[in-house]
Design a protein around this nucleic acid. Structure first.
Lengths: 221, 221
DNA sequence: CCATAATATGGTCACTGTCAACTTAACGCG
DNA sequence: CGCGTTAAGTTGACAGTGACCATATTATGG
């Protein structure tokens, strides 16, 4: 044990694992796909084809770490977007715009984040052997929760200030409201990736209009 | 040329291509993953390891066909869900519930549908060679549009009857409303897959509450 | 200074995706 | 009828891959 588990301190390379994650992230970004070989990641990092196995038991684990890094970056961008706005409504709009923009800028990374990284191992398929690998997507899951927390904070602030029609003391209402926002932004991002990859202006206006629909509702008032 | 291009008429097998799609779909469902080998799909179909190449140029194309089949099944389930309901609001709820249920029942298939199947080939990466493979995800895209159309019809009906606060003649407003619904349902499905895989009751209640939030809006009225 | 565990390397194996060439079967046609 | 043509499927082959093993090397604790 090194004692400080959070600070990975490889001995020989300097900081492999970070280098591997960076190389894999670069490959995902360049090829817009994660079908590259683990050996190529090792090649980019300048190590032998087996060095990555000292840090990641399987290829999926490396991809999971890349997804976790993507979630962390997404969280940072969301926090930066809401840093200089006051009202919860403006924060929600800015946060959604930053979120969608991040997804559109790197669709493959976004798909990786919500793809196999979060997929839990099928429980019913394995007949008897219950491998303790259930903790594999834990890293990506935790990072995703970190990003989700940004949205939840905005919802909570809005509820406290009375600008959202939910009770700030009802955990259930808060959770539903946060989930509906998270759903809308997440779904919008995936659809934006598919439909309007390129025109950045259209993304902003579309985000604004859809978030307005979400805030004001679909039924006549 | 056989003359009828839409009707695949294999000579030797009866209907390979359909058999391959079925085998691949079964594998996706069983293993909750599409990392299986193309050779295993061929094995399941009882053909040699190279027979699939007569129907799909690459493995991705077979996965795209599986995704398209998944979209068709999703569309059918949505249509069946709204067949016996009257009001647009009830149709929206039933449609969303069916959608989410389908996603939760087969998460891997759902992820495949919105994963690499819809991913367009990166345009800026390929330096010069512009391969004419841009039509690869076309099949899945078209099938996805078919499922999306169900939601759009509900929105249009609601606008016509005046139960939704949008103009039935404004193409733009209709598109935004449909997109916001599609986004919410799609995002909710992905989040439901991650959080509550199993409890089916919770899915229904959560869908109802979130769709109500969407219909009535988040801000006080 | 050594013992130990962590870290990287080279070697190996079954397997994969894809290409090329060959065989089989159905059709069209003089 | 034989003939070529073409689609559909088969066999063989090759480079490359993921994952494992044993081995070598280096940093860290004592």
């Amino acid at each position: 044990m090194t004692g400080a588990e959070s600070i990975e301190r490889p001995y020989h390379h300097g900081d492999l694992r970070r280098a591997l994650i960076d190389a894999a992230l670069a490959l995902v970004t360049e090829e817009q796909d994660w079908s590259f070989s683990l050996r190529e990641v090792a090649r980019r990092a300048g190590v032998s084809h087996n060095a990555p196995y000292n840090h990641f038991p399987e290829k999926r684990d490396l991809l999971g770490a890349v997804a976790a890094a993507g979630f962390d970056a997404l969280r940072d961008r969301m926090r930066a977007a809401i840093a200089r706005v006051g009202s919860p409504r403006a924060a929600l709009l800015a946060c959604a715009a930053a979120y969608v923009k991040a997804g559109v800028e790197n669709p493959a990374l976004y798909r990786l984040m919500f793809g196999p990284a979060l997929a839990a191992p099928a429980p019913a398929v394995r007949p008897s052997a219950a491998k303790p690998d259930s903790g594999r997507p834990a890293e990506a899951r935790a990072a995703g929760a970190g990003a989700k927390a940004v949205l939840e904070e905005i919802i909570l602030r809005g509820a406290e200030r009375g600008v959202f029609a939910i009770s700030a003391t009802s955990k259930s209402e808060l959770a539903v409201a946060a989930l509906s926002n998270w759903s809308a932004v997440h779904g919008l991002t995936m659809l934006a990736i598919d439909s309007l990859t390129g025109s950045e202006l259209a993304v902003d206006t579309l985000v604004n209009r859809i978030m307005r629909t979400l805030l004001e509702g679909l039924e006549p008032r």
